[in-house]
């Protein structure tokens, strides 16, 4: 199962990789929204983990683009900015869930399992 993680902070990318790979996920790490879209065109991912605040194009932009080009693609938003407004925007964009930073490995896995479980039930 391939997961695309998008964050401008390498620490976060590394953390996600170290949490997800032992769990058997195939993790692809990119550092910007544009690189994520590029990766999306090449590969098929089961899930996207997206940071909200990034330089150039932010996570909201990326979500909009993914929603446009790949509808029904499950996405999880990560942010230290868990304002109601952001959450509402995320819900509107169809992001499955929201993980406030900083998160523990358990919180991250919990979120992913919730989304994937829903996805499986959906399909």
């Amino acid at each position: 199962m391939r997961i695309l993680v998008v964050d401008d902070d390498p620490t976060v990318l590394k953390s996600c990789q170290r949490v997800l790979e032992p769990e058997g996920f195939d993790v692809c790490l990119v550092s910007s929204a544009d690189k994520a879209l590029e990766a999306m065109r090449k590969d098929d991912f089961a899930l996207l983990l997206i940071d909200v605040k990034m330089p150039t194009h932010d996570g909201i932009y990326l979500m909009r683009e993914v929603r446009r080009q790949w509808p029904n693609k499950p996405m999880i938003l990560m942010s230290g900015y868990d304002t109601t407004q952001t959450v509402e925007e995320a819900a509107e964009m169809g992001a499955a869930t929201f993980v406030p930073k900083p998160f523990t490995p358990d919180e991250l896995l919990q979120a992913i399992h919730t989304v994937m479980g829903r996805q499986e039930g959906h399909e």
Binding site: D7, D9, V12, V19, K101, P102
Partner: peptide, 10 residues
């Protein structure tokens, strides 16, 4: 929050 995520994870 970003570095904290790292600290928590590792």
């Amino acid at each position: 929050n970003n570095p904290l995520t790292g600290v928590l994870t590792f």
